[in-house]
Design a protein around this nucleic acid. Structure first.
Lengths: 225, 225
DNA sequence: TGCTAATTGTCAGCTACCTTACATTTGTAT
DNA sequence: ATACAAATGTAAGGTAGCTGACAATTAGCA
């Protein structure tokens, strides 16, 4: 029964659509599965073997700790996304871990080596995965460009728009976003200080462009942002 | 004879090592090949079909033009590197092109669709390619972190070190780099203004940490940088 | 060989943003 | 309910580095 569940967890991910149920099951048998609650930390280095993770529901942030013990957000992973050793190399970042942002997340994982084997057997999967990694790089590069050429305000607007597009609940021009990020998180994502992010957000509220509280962000008119 | 040449150009790239000569030839037949001189511009949109390029010798910069006509360096591509639609999607960036930096470059290219076909036939290639893209992403992410947390001076040092490692000619602790970049290029790479880059470089020269001219950069002691 | 364009050098203001520092509010455990 | 920690709000002061402006040098070319 448990295997069955895991099977389904993979099954409806677009990347695994091309696999026969036999192959998916093969991946499932060796895959781990877990749920975690808000604030919990998932260490990549828990298993000494490199893994690929698939976030089934919820959101997490990938955080790295630098020499001075300062947390930096590396990535926000959302429902349906994969994370872990995406570059398929096995050197695990010791000072990197994932932190759960939403109330609950469910994650399944499989060993990098098993995933590789499966890709070798199924070129379509390999191609799909390559495109997925490529897309991720494109997005990263985009962020990079924004960081260089746009100021903090523009970066915040861009971020809010993207967030709305990805996770917002639309009602005509109005969008509601479930706000599971602190202002500090947002600040880190757009690469600015917490204070600047706070000031900017409050500025938007004053201008009536957004409504903001700890639970949700409402954008009355996405076009106006 | 010409086909033969192109065959060899691919052959000794590590990514294509796993291919049978038959397969390499297959890719070769459909691939283009060209040489270009310093300052020349290579437009990706030249062929309406998306392509992957392989830089055999020399260096180029990938530049994008924004709305205001401002050039931004997206990437520096060196000998042996690939560039083009690496994310394997076909939407060509119209306002993106490559500019030759070294005296001469030789480039070969093949159609994205052909490359995909070949990957489907040879999963090992797909896997290798994914690792390659992953590595590229890792480097980008590294730059990103530097940009956020380090100041311009540190970024310049990091860049010089990397450049030396990658292309420098070593003589014990001393390294000589062939300098095909203008200070403006360097400034863009480390995301600062031309003036700041100039001042910093001259500062290093004054401190005796480097010797700088338009032809080459000499680092007497790489460890001291 | 001289002419022109590109590259490099230097400086003075300006500003977006960081830092430090503290007050206030909100969530949560006891 | 109370206490404590986390998250948010606000302000003053400092600064890295950008912008613009202009001179000096070097490279490419007719």
């Amino acid at each position: 029964m448990y295997d069955e569940l895991k099977y389904w967890y993979l099954r409806d991910h677009k990347l695994f659509k091309t696999l026969s149920s036999e192959q998916t099951k093969q991946l499932c048998i060796i895959s781990g599965f877990k749920k975690a609650k808000k604030g919990e930390i998932i260490y990549f280095s828990d298993s000494d073997l490199p893994r690929i993770f698939l976030l089934k529901t919820g959101s997490i942030k990938i955080v790295s700790l630098d020499e001075d013990g300062i947390e930096t957000i590396k990535d926000i992973i959302q429902k349906g996304d994969m994370f872990g050793e995406l570059s398929l190399d096995s050197d695990i970042q010791v000072n990197e871990y994932a932190k759960v942002l939403t109330e609950e997340v469910s994650i399944c994982s499989f060993l990098l080596s098993d995933f590789e084997d499966l890709m070798l057997q199924n070129p379509q999967l390999a191609l799909g995965y390559t495109k997925f990694v490529g897309l991720k790089m494109k997005r990263l590069r985009n962020n990079y460009t924004n960081l260089v050429s746009k100021d903090a305000k523009t970066r915040l607007v861009t971020f809010l728009k993207e967030w709305a597009e990805k996770e917002g609940i639309f009602d005509n021009e109005k969008v509601i976003i479930e706000n599971y990020l602190t202002q500090n998180d947002i600040a880190q994502i757009i690469c600015t200080s917490r204070q600047t992010a706070t000031t900017l957000l409050n500025g938007f509220v004053d201008d009536g462009i957004i409504q903001y509280n700890r639970k949700e962000i409402i954008i009355p008119n996405l076009g106006k942002l």
